[in-house]
Amino acid sequence: MNKKSISPLPFGQDFWVICVISSIVYIMFLIAASFFALNTASNQWQSEYHSKIVIQLPLQTSGSDLMINEKVVATLKETPGIKSYKFVDKSVLDNISKLLSSPFMPLVQVPSFIQAEIYPQKWSFSTLTEKLKAIHPECSVLDTHALSSKFMRNIQTLEWVFYILCLILFISSTLVITVVTRFEVAVHKDIIHILYLLGARDEYIALHFQKRGRAFGFKAGVAGSILGALTAFIFLKIGSGMLLENSYLIWSLGILLFLTPLMTMFLCDFLCRISSSYYIQILQQKN
């Protein structure tokens, strides 16, 4: 006995629909992955540099210049809003220069530094700068706190760009699914009419469109998210291996990889159901 369920509507190959939807899923996945990566980077930046400043000292070549260090330290101790300070070693400097060389930051050369922790509300950039200039004209303050705030603002702007892009992609995928459903209803209008004459209800016919939407949604979701995850991994590996060590980012991408096919499946299922019901009703009214 043939136990497979009977599909009264002979739907065509879904290859092109899957290609289009999976491309949209792929782009959305990359956007989401970029969003998570930026979020992770900004959190790292904020935790490390939001309440810190870096004081650039002049190159010290003679014993008399070493007095500058002592004067700067004394000034730091007197300045309100400075919590603590330390001389920065080479590895930290490299790290800072790497972060500062991101596209959002100006390239900064770092000859010699003191890193100070501040109370962001209490300290004054201009007061400290004036005091340090008085000690030596080449002394300057690199306000990582201000840079961090600027960086966060840039991230927030990018977040909005991502939201708008996601909205555009969501609308386009909705349109694709709706147009495909409309096309299929038009192509199969004779079969739908026969099914009506045999006593089929709207729900029964819409159910087959829904099942089909679920199937191609899942396939497109799996294809798009796997390709997206691979691309994101390659970009993160090339761009900054540091981010790949972050467990938050890895978990976020993992959850995204798991949820994307499911979300795509439910979205396609829902849209096919709604749009097919609508177009079937129109078809019925015409008949």
């Binding site: 006995m1 043939n2 136990k3 497979k4 369920s5 009977i6 009264p8 099914l195 045999l198 006593g199 089929a200 209800r201 029964y204």
Partner: peptide, 14 residues
Amino acid sequence: LPLILRGIDSTRAQ
């Protein structure tokens, strides 16, 4: 098909 449209299980209908 008519039996399936009336909600009868596909195996029984066949």
